[in-house]
Simulated scan of single mutants.
Amino acid sequence: MTGMDWPEILLRLGTATFAGSAIGLNRDLHGKPIGLKTLGIVGLSTATVVLLAVQFGEHGNVTDAASRVIQGILTGIGFLGAGVIVHESDRFRVRGLTSAACTFLAACLGIACGAGQWKIVLVALAFTFVLVALAFTFVLLTIGRRVERWLHRSLGGKEDPHHAEAVPKTGSQDGV
């Protein structure tokens, strides 16, 4: 068994907990059934098990035993995700897929943290937050105009005369 110093253990477990919690915060803010605490625990627990498996092998290498641990984790996480989906099912509608996918991502990030693969963790988190930003941008571009018009009407603002959809002002037709 190889030794690992306390700062490295704290870094790996702390980063896994933070990564899972960050994903969970997004789920919490959207009122989903799985949130900050749950995904933080998923990240921490998966990193803990992987760290333990890595400790029994060569430091930093994924051994056959560590590989089996990772496979077991991902199978168990699949059941957690299925529980979220089934719990949310209503009249044959599939719901909860995003929460299940977030659970899987939190587990994968926990595995990567447990194995000390920091570049993978950083890139995966960066892509996660880029996808959220892209989604917000898409929504803003899709419904932004309607929201803007509604706010103008509700708050008594002036319509933009440069847009064809703006309501023309009433007045004389001769341009005087």
Rank of each mutant, 00 (worst) to 15 (best):
I70C: 05
P7W: 08
A107Q: 07
L151W: 11
F56H: 15
L109S: 08
V132H: 07
D174E: 11
R146G: 11
V139T: 07
K158F: 04
K37G: 06
T75K: 02
I85M: 06
P161K: 05
G110F: 06
G57H: 12
E8V: 14
E8G: 03
G114Q: 03
S21I: 02
G76S: 04
T142P: 00
G60T: 13
G83Q: 05
E88K: 07
H163D: 14
D28R: 03
A22R: 01
E58P: 12
L25M: 09
Q71N: 04
T46G: 01
S67N: 14
G171E: 13
S45T: 15
L11R: 07
I143T: 08
D174P: 09
A53I: 01
V84W: 06
F104L: 13
V84G: 12
L10D: 11
C102V: 05
C113K: 02
R149K: 07
A66S: 14
A126D: 04
R149S: 07
E88R: 08
R93Y: 08
V69S: 11
A135K: 09
L151Q: 10
Q173L: 13
A65L: 03
L140M: 08
T142I: 00
N26H: 11
R27F: 02
L39I: 01
F129Q: 01
T63W: 06
V86C: 00
G175F: 14
K32E: 15
D174Q: 09
R27L: 03
Q71H: 07
H152M: 02
A133I: 04
V121F: 04
S67W: 04
G81K: 09
L36E: 05
E159N: 07
L10G: 14
V42D: 06
G35T: 05
A16H: 08
T38K: 02
H59M: 10
A106F: 10
A106H: 08
L13T: 09
G20I: 01
N26K: 11
P168V: 10
Q117N: 04
H30R: 13
I120P: 07
P33N: 07
S89K: 10
L80D: 05
L10C: 08
S67E: 13
